[in-house]
Each structure stands twice: as C-alpha cells, then as structure tokens.
Design a protein around this nucleic acid. Structure first.
Length: 1011
RNA sequence: GCCGGAGUGGUGGAAUGGUAUACACGAGGGACUUAAAAUCCCUUGCCUUCACGGGCUUACGGGUUCGAGUCCCGUCUCCGGUACCA
C-alpha cells in the first residue's frame, strides 16, 4: 500500500459497511444499551452544506466510542419528510411533493454515507410513509379519546369520563381546560342526551379538541402557524406576514401538562439556556384572580358632583347584577393603587359595557386594532393607545369606582383578558395613565421617582392602602387574598403563558387528521381503518371556495359517505415521537413493541440545534408524558442529555468596486470596465487623512487610476468616464461599493481574477488595482452561511479533495462543539497533514507497512498512555476539538521518536477510530485483524504507571513571577524542596537582595518565593 | 427592557486557582525540485535591546489570594433567546 489515499480507502470501507450491515443493531444484547440520536432532518432541496454535519460527526464519534467501550448502541437516522418547502415547490411546478422529497432524501443519504456515519440504515423512518404516519394518526386518536383528570393529575381515556357522567353527572369533575366552555348536567340529564349532545358535551374535555381560536393566519402560505413558527410577525418559512384571525381549529391541550413540563426540566441534563427558554415559554406565574363588580350605566351619566354624593350607595343602588370583570394580577398587594381597569378589545363584555356616548369611539378603536397587524403591534410597542368605555367598576377592597378602558396592550388570550391598572407600580400602566391623564397614587413608602416612571418595588410599607397600610409585601398579600376569598371576590391562582397548541394546517403535504364528520359532529375514525392515506389531488392549492387543498380530493369519504377533516397535521406531529419508532421501525401491530421500548428506554444523548428549544423539544416531551399516562412508555422523559451543536458560520469574501461616472452609449454592446480595488488600497483611500494625501503611496494610487482610465479611453473611444472624486460630505477621495464574491473564487482571501471575470458577465472587462506583490486581496466578514452571500462551502468538494476523515476531524478541530464559529476552508490542510503523518508512522516514507514487534520504550509508553487517558476524558465531556489536538501532538511526538512499533501504534488506531473511521479500519485490517472489525474491538486500557516520572521540573517564581526551573525527585517533600531552593543561588540571582518571607511549595506543580 | 452565553495573537482556538498563548491556519525565511505540487527545517503575542536580557499582555476598572484568563464586584461590547404575559 503506497501513500495515504483517502479517496480509495473511504469508498472501500463505506461499501464494506453497507454490504456487511456492519452497524446493524439488535434489540437484545447482554451489553448495556446506549441511544445516540441526531435531530430529525427535513430533507431540503439544497442538500447539506459544511455546517450541517457538525452535530452528526460529534454524535457518530460518541457512537463509535461507546461501541468500543462495550455498549450496544442505537444510532439511527431518518427523515421528517412532510413539510412546506416541497409543497410550495409543488404549487409552483405541479410536481408531486412525494417525488421531490424522495429525490432530496436520496441526496441526503448519499451525502451522509460519504461522511462515513455509522447509522443503522435498516431502521430509517420517514414521516410521510403511510406505515409511519399510521401511528402518528393513532396517537392523535388517543389524544382525541382522552381527557386530563386534574385530581389524578394525568390523562385518562374518555370512557372513564363518560362513566362518571353516567354515574354522577358533570358535578365534581376537575378537568384541565376552560370550564367556561363546558356544560353542567346531572346523571339523569346525561342519560337523556342524544349521541350528538353527548359528543358536544365531551368535546371540551378532549386533549385534541376543535374550537374557535385566535390563530396566526398566514395568507401568503394559506395556512395557520403556531407561535414558534412565527418570528417578528413573519412566517419562519418564507417570511410572509402573519395576522390574527378567529378560526375553528384543532388544538392539543398541552397546557394540561404545563406544570409537569416545567417540573420535569429539573431532572434533565440539558443546556441551562434551553431549560430556561422552556421555563419562560411555559411562563408560570403565581398570582390572584380578583373580581371587580360593574356599575350600571345610570352611574356613568351622573355629573361628577353627584358621583361624589352617591359614594355611599354605590354597592346598593348602582351595582349591575350578574356582571363582573375578573382580572388576573401577580401583585394583588398593589390593588389599592388600581385606579382603572383595562380590557382587551376582544373582551366579551365590551359591547355590554360601552355607554352610548362612547360607542362611536369604542367601535372606531376596535376597528383600528383589527386593521393593525400583529407585526405593527409588535414594532410599535411604545405607542400608547386606548379608549374609555364610559363604564365603571368597583374596586372590591375599597368600593372606589374605577373607569373601564380598552387597550390593545392587554391580550385577550392571557389570564382573563383584563387587568387592574396600577400606574404607580407598573410601567405600562404608568405610561397609559400619563397619556390619558389618569391619577397615579403612590402605594408604598418606598416608591421613588413617580413623577418620572413607575416603581414596582416590594420594599417598604404600604400607604393609601386601607386594610394593609403599614404592612410589608408578604403580610399584605396574605391578608388581601384571605379578605377577597372570604368575600368571594378573589382567589389565589396560577397562570401559564403557554397556550394550547394549534394542530391543524390548511395544507396538503402532511398527515391527514383522522377525523370525519357526521351531521356536523366530529368523530375519530376507527383504529382499524388506519392509516388514513393522503389522497391524490389535481393541484396543491386551496379550492375556489377557500377550503384547504384536501377539499379537491375526489370521492374522499369515510365509509363512502362521511366527509373527512380537510386540514392536515403540522410539521411537528411526526417529529414528536419518531425516536420511539426507531426502536422498532417495522412493527405493524404497535407503534413500538413493549419489549423494544423497555430495552431502549429513552434517548441517552440527543444532538441537535438550539432552534428547537421551545418547539419540537416541548411538543415531544408533551407527547411522551401523554403516552406515559396511558401506560405506553416507561421512562420519565424522552431525552436525558441534550447537546446543542453551535452553528458554523460562513466566512464571506468581498471585493470593493470604485464608483465611476459613465456616459452610456446604448447602441454599442459595451460592458463597461468595472474597477475593483484590492483591500489595502480601499483602506488607505478611506482613511482620508491629510498626511496620507501628501504621501507617495497616495500619488501612486492616483497614477494607477489615471492609467486605467486612459487605457480604457483608448480602448473605448466613445465612452466618457471619470472617477467620482472627493465625496464632499465625508471628504473621502472615492466611493466604494462592497460586493460579495464567491468564496470558491478566493484562496486565503486572494482573488482568482480569471475565475472572478468569468463568474459574472459584467465583470468580463473588469480592471483591478492590485497589491504591491501583484495579488488582489479581498475583504472578509463572518456571516450566516447562505447561497445569497456566496459563502456556502459544499462538503462533497472537500471530501473529494481531502477525504471524509479529514473533514470529520477538521469540523471537530474548529472549536468547542457548542460554540458558534466561522468556517475557514484553509485550515483543513492542517488535519489533512496530520492524517498523512499518522499514515507514515505505519508506512515509513509512504512505503509498505513496516511495523516492528520491539518492546516499547518508557518514553513511547508515556506518550501512548497520556493519549489514552486524555482522549477518554475529552470524549466523555464532549470536548472533541482538544482530542484532535491531542492526536496531533501524539503523532508529532511519535514521529520525532521514530516510533514504528506495533505495541504503540495498534492501540492508537483504536483511539483515532471514532474520529477517522475509514483510515482506522484500513490500518486495522493491515494490522492483521478481520476486515470491518474495528467497531467490535475494545478500547485500549489506560495504565497510570506509565505516566509516573522519576523527576519533576518545577518552575521557581518570585512573588508569582517565574524566573527559573529546577529538577527535583518526584518523591521530594515540600520541606526538602524549600530547603533546596533556599540553599541555591536562586534568591541571590533574582531576589533583588531581599530575603525570603515565605516559600510556597505546591507538590508536583511549582514553587513560589515571597520576598 | 428581561433571561442566557461569550470577549485570549493576523485567524480558529488551548489552559484541575499554579510556567498564558498548546494544537492548527496564515505570514516570513530556508532545504529539496528545471519548475510547481508535496514534504521537511527555522522564526512568528506586543514593546525594548546589536545581543544577553528586561518590560507589558487574556475587553475595561476594582477586589480576594503567596499566585487570577480562571473566583468576587462594577462597567463596556458582541451573540442568542424573549417581550405590552398583568
């Protein structure tokens, strides 16, 4: 075997692994199990760029390492193959999304295979396969047929709920969700209900339920989106505007699990940032719900003098019966400072409360709010807007009348859709009060600067606060809640920011929701009729009547007569449980067999991007908890350890073009010569100092420009051109435009001028002002890797040139896995050189394998065992970049030692094998082992005794500054060392004549003399 | 605003409170070669010095410590998340 040829050995081993199913994993083993999972990729048409495999490489290293350490490792890969891009493409081209998806997956599989990942491809799943989504639909039916029993704090089958209805009616049932939507009835009434009435009564209890919901409607995509699919008021995919709309929707009752999703985070080995994001997303707050009675319109019309006179009879004479406003507050202690109420414009009482005088203003405000898109509301946070309804409510603690306002800063969907405004304690309320000239009374003796802003302090004692005057925060809160509870006007309450998850999409390329309608009532289809297969349609657009694309399906009816639900499931449906299917991917009888589920349990290591923090990771946990409630899975959480690999950013290159003034000559087909200037030229010209302008360099630059201009004039005599000089406002000599240049046309920022000329037609005749050494240097910047920035690096090209092993090593070498870091292709030559050096340890001078069986020297053993120790430590803490450095140091040292000994190099092959599996497999075979067997070998054993030294070199420092080194026996005691240092001439040489005050000896480390 | 995270050479980065800048890229010099590629050797944080050496340096300012990139307090900058959530 001659020189290291990755292109040969990598193909060879990839074919071998495939042909021999080397990485096929069994569901039973005497070995302990370990489950390593990569986040489910959506197979996009663009294929992988160099940033995508980062996490896959890391997880593959862990996988291969764990195999060497004696684990039975499950390491699967599959595709989240339903999704918007394929469908958008289908709308444009008429090409079936299934075909596009299939083709994209092929590309992915090819690319992943060429990186040498050790996936068990026999377990591959695709969410768009009916054999997979059959079970996604099955889980949906389980949700549809379950309710959440708050007393048991778990989901239960609906049959248990209906049994209780039959026995005792709706009385005493505590279920997650909004009781306002539910009927109350006795067992007798239940018995008399028709089937339709029964289903209607049960619907608001289901974990998958249909309801009119305010949704993020995206007209550009023709569908609704969930909150995490909307960024800054635009759709995450496609960037289309999104607006609020009330529509009937399928929802999943994730809020039933809010508290358990929150509690469960504490046991997880996840990045704190992700856990914190989930906590914020769930948004638990502890506060109180307080009821404000409402005054009748007779009160509103009183003159201000009469209002004062009537103060005593408010609660008797003017109280509006059966009407009250509930507000939610986390600061019930500030209630005496509540000088007005604010309702969301959508609040159900708005119509009833508005007085005739205010009707026009209120209607106008509500209309304006509707017109304002979500995006406007977000970008326009500072602007205060609102309107007075004309009505008043009574503050329940002091019976003071407070005006009721509307404002869009109050959200209909949170709490009760109404707040008590405490302008002295809440900045929003403060701004509102200032704007509308409402009073801002202080409520605590610790509040400060109320003429400028609100002060939400909990310090100090209450003032102007009736029964809590003089109390502290804690005392006041307790007293008020007790007071309100006694009067039946309030109670302590926990609120969550998290909303139920909207589960329908008005799109084609997704799982059909297994629901049909009979007489307008929703029924789940029978489990035995699953899968409900996605029907073929003629076009992938909504119907003329505005129904989702599935409305186009011909004769698509349940049992030949009942229409199906026309929306499909969102992208996150299939990805919420895929990791379970990998355990038993072809089971036709169950979503995963009990046996497989018990063996594999939960995912031990989950690798993926941080962008899934609040979407996928929350939904998947929710589905897992639900399945657990039904006794279908056995762990507490699906993903024990999570690592977010950082994004690899692009390193963009730029050229500067000088602005010229042209007189165009349309009749001639002329490509004007653009003038591009090298980096240092642009920098010099932009610095704009008088000193520079009088320099020789400046003169030479001007001469170069003039030269180009005259040369161009000679070439194109009709063309009039001049440099745009002297930018008056800034005084700069010239203007420059900055353009991205394809990074494939540069090497170490040096532009390949001919490639650049050919890249774009308008550059054909470009002129270049070069550096003194004749090169053209581009500027650079770190940006996200994207096509439009021309900084995308394709891994296939690098694999062709350097090999997959080099790419794997280099991606790891770039820096800590979790960090964001820029890609720079140049560095790959370093790891490529390392692999060649490693090869040469086995094949001196790239000749045939030439290893000796001589016993290893202590120096060689030390190098080896330090490597074993550190490689192991690094991989256990996912510090892959330092392992690669370690391998480089090890190989450098063994090369220097001219070590070609089997005893040292054979274990080294094992150490490197998780990182560079092809090279390792090749050498392993050359060493005489069975082909393809390195993944079933055992990791070399670390032996401490080879690291023990006879002597230790100590740095000697004076006052912490190192001055000299001194050797001591490893066994020397601190006292012996101290004596020896003081006896030496160390102090005389460096002590500036001072005497030693104190000597600190850290055994094995260093000596510090304090003078 | 709030919640996370990070600031170390020209670049990516390393460093259980114990010799800061390992490893690699880039750059400079040299060897081999007709030449190129490949490979090998030397130099490479900054300032100062012919040199030996000396001084400075981990965003900035303080502190704790015999000793701080690492711990504590304050400030600045950048990145990510999130936001009228009552």
């Amino acid at each position: 075997m001659p020189a290291y040829r990755p292109e040969e050995i990598e193909k060879k081993w990839q074919a071998h692994w495939k042909a021999h199913s080397t990485f096929r994993t069994e569901n039973h083993s005497d070995k302990p199990k370990y489950y390593v999972l990569d986040m489910f990729p959506y197979p996009s048409g663009a294929g992988l760029h160099v940033g995508h495999p980062l996490g896959y490489i890391a997880s593959d290293i862990v996988t291969r390492y764990k195999r060497l350490r004696g684990f039975n490792v499950l390491h699967p890969m599959g595709f989240d193959s339903f999704g918007l891009p394929a469908e958008q493409y289908a709308i444009q081209t008429g090409r079936h999304p299934a075909l596009t998806t299939e083709k994209n997956i092929e590309t992915y599989v090819q690319q992943l295979s060429s990186l040498g990942f050790s996936y068990d491809w026999s377990r591959e799943v695709r969410t768009s396969d009916a054999s997979y989504y059959k079970w996604t639909q099955w889980i949906f039916l389980k949700l549809f047929n379950s309710w959440y029993n708050l007393d048991a704090d778990r989901a239960e089958p609906l049959t248990e709920l209906t049994a209780r209805f039959a026995a005792t009616g709706s009385e005493g049932i505590r279920a997650a969700g909004d009781d306002g939507d539910r009927l109350s009835f006795s067992a007798g009434q239940w018995a008399l209900f028709s089937e339709k009435q029964k289903l209607a009564a049960v619907l608001p209890y289901r974990l998958a339920y249909q309801q009119d919901t305010y949704v993020n409607w995206c007209p550009g995509l023709g569908t609704v989106l969930s909150n995490d699919e909307v960024k800054d008021g635009l759709s995450e995919r496609g960037g289309f505007p999104v607006e609020r709309r009330l529509m009937p929707q399928w929802n999943l009752r994730i809020t039933a699990y809010a508290d358990r999703l929150l509690q469960g985070l504490d046991q997880l080995d996840w990045p704190d940032a992700v856990k914190e994001m989930q906590r914020n997303w769930i948004g638990k707050s502890i506060g109180a719900e307080v009821t404000f009675p409402v005054l009748s319109s007779e009160y509103s019309v009183l003159s201000s003098e009469t209002k004062a006179d009537e103060a005593a009879s408010l609660t008797t004479q003017y109280l509006l019966p059966n009407t009250e406003i509930k507000v939610y507050t986390t600061r019930v202690d500030t209630i005496y400072g509540a000088t007005f109420l604010v309702l969301a414009p959508e609040h159900e009482l708005v119509d009833e409360l508005t007085t005739p005088e205010q009707r026009a203003a209120v209607d106008e405000y509500i209309a304006a709010t509707k017109r304002r898109s979500e995006r406007d509301r977000m970008t326009d946070v500072k602007a205060v807007s609102g309107v007075f309804t004309g009505a008043y409510a009574l503050n329940p603690v002091n019976n003071e009348p407070v005006p009721i306002w509307l404002a869009d800063y109050v959200l209909a969907g949170y709490g009760t859709g109404a707040v008590m405004a405490v302008p002295s304690g809440d900045q929003r309320d403060y701004l509102f009060a200032k704007h509308f000239n409402l009073p801002i009374p202080a409520i605590s003796d610790a509040q400060q600067g109320l003429d400028q802003q609100a002060d939400p302090t909990k310090e100090g004692r209450y003032i102007n606060s009736g029964i809590i005057n003089g109390l502290t925060y804690k005392e006041a809160t307790q007293k008020l809640i007790a007071f309100l509870e006694e009067k039946g006007l309030g109670k302590g309450k926990v609120n969550f920011r998290q909303r139920d998850a909207i589960f329908g999409r008005q799109r084609y390329w997704g799982e059909p929701i297994p629901i049909y309608y009979k007489d307008g009532t929703a029924y789940g289809i029978a489990e035995s009729d699953l899968p409900l297969v996605l029907p073929e349609i003629d076009e992938y657009k909504p119907t003329e009547t505005g129904e989702p694309p599935l409305g186009r399906a011909q004769d698509w009816l349940y049992k030949g007569k009942y229409p199906y639900e026309l929306s499909t499931m969102p992208g996150w449906a299939g990805s919420s449980w895929y990791y379970l299917r990998y355990m038993d991917p072809t089971n036709e009888a169950r979503f995963v067999s009990e046996e497989a589920e018990h063996y594999w349990g939960s995912v031990d290591l989950y690798m993926g991007g941080a962008e899934h923090a609040t979407g996928h990771l929350l939904y998947a946990r929710f589905w897992y908890l639900f399945l657990k409630d039904l006794g279908l899975v056995s762990s507490n959480e699906p993903f024990q350890k999570l690592i977010n690999q950082g994004m690899i950013l692009g390193r963009s290159n730029f050229v500067y073009q000088m602005w010229m003034q042209w007189q165009t000559i349309p009749e001639e087909e002329l490509h004007f010569p653009q003038i591009y200037v090298s980096k240092s030229f642009k920098e010099a010209m932009s610095q704009n100092s008088e000193e520079f302008k009088s320099s020789e360099k400046y003169a030479s630059y001007l001469a170069q420009i003039d030269e180009i201009i005259s040369r161009t004039r000679a070439k194109y005599p009709h063309l009039k051109m001049s440099l745009m000089r002297h930018n008056a406002p800034t005084g700069e000599y010239a203007y420059f435009s900055k353009f991205h240049v394809d990074v494939n046309h540069t090497d170490n920022d040096v532009l390949n001028i001919s490639a650049f000329r050919n890249w774009r037609n308008e550059n054909r005749n470009a002129e270049f002002i070069l550096e003194e050494d004749g090169t053209f240097i581009c500027d650079w910047e770190v940006e996200k890797m994207s096509k439009s920035k021309h900084n995308v690096v394709n891994p296939n090209i690098l694999i062709d040139k350097y090999g997959a092993d080099a790419l794997r090593l280099y991606e790891m070498f770039l820096g800590p896995l979790e960090q964001y870091k820029p890609w720079n292709t140049n560095g790959i030559s370093g790891v490529s050189g390392f692999l060649k050096k490693f090869w040469r340890l086995f094949h001196p001078e790239d000749g045939p394998l030439a290893l000796t069986d001589e016993p290893a020297t202590p120096a060689e053993l030390k190098v080896l065992h330090r490597a074993i120790q550190k490689a192991q430590e690094d991989i256990e803490k996912f510090s892959f970049n330092t392992s690669v450095s370690l391998f480089m140091i090890t190989v450098n040292e063994l090369t220097a030692l001219k070590c070609h000994k089997r005893a040292i190099l054979e274990p080294l092959v094992l150490l490197v094998s998780p990182y560079a599996p092809h090279l390792a497999e090749e050498l392993w075979q050359e060493l005489g082992h069975k082909a393809g067997s390195i993944s079933t070998a055992s990791y070399p054993e670390f032996r401490e005794e080879f690291l023990v030294e006879d002597t230790v070199t100590y740095p000697l420092a004076i006052n912490g500054k190192v001055r000299e080194q001194m050797q001591f026996a490893a066994a020397a005691t601190a006292a012996e060392i101290e004596t020896a240092v003081l006896a030496s001439d160390f102090l005389a040489k460096h002590g500036e004549g001072k005497s030693a005050k104190k000597v600190i000896v850290v055994p094995g480390r260093m000596v510090n003399v304090v003078v």
